[in-house]
């Protein structure tokens, strides 16, 4: 049994699926606005983990040029993507939380069932 086909190799991808499913569950069934934000953050972590896990290549080195070995180095695109996505995610989370604070100030609650004057 090779490393590629073993369960341990697929563990990151199983974690990705779990994180996205938990996040989706929170988005669909949790009425607390903060928990909705947490659900989105979980999905974001899942997607980021997915990108990082894709960037792994067996037997290659991380592309750090200080004391670089002469063997093959991995292409650093997934790391760059994840870094960008984390920064964007931080901005979005901050924005969502500030809206949640604003909603709490105006409505006095962060229950999604009670903060729905826009309907129909």
């Amino acid at each position: 049994m090779t490393l590629e086909s073993s369960a341990i190799f697929n563990l990151p991808f199983i974690t990705v699926v779990l994180l996205i499913i938990i996040g989706m569950y929170a988005l669909m069934f949790k009425r607390n606005l903060i928990k909705i934000v947490i659900g989105l953050t979980l999905i974001e972590s899942g997607v980021n983990l997915f990108l990082i896990a894709l960037g792994y290549r067996k037997g290659c080195y991380a592309p750090i040029y200080t004391n670089a070995p002469t063997t093959a180095m991995v292409f650093p695109t997934p790391q760059a993507l994840t870094l960008t996505s984390i920064v964007i995610g931080l901005a979005v989370t901050a924005l969502m939380l500030s809206f949640a604070v604003l909603i709490y100030k105006k409505y006095g609650t962060i229950n999604a069932e009670k903060t729905r004057r826009l309907k129909g």
Binding site: M28, K30, L33, K119, G120
Partner: peptide, 17 residues
């Protein structure tokens, strides 16, 4: 229809799913 447009964000996401 009015009942479906409930205004709850969770429902919006459920429709998407």
């Amino acid at each position: 229809m009015i009942k479906t447009h409930s205004g709850i964000i969770n429902d919006y996401i459920s429709w998407f799913v």
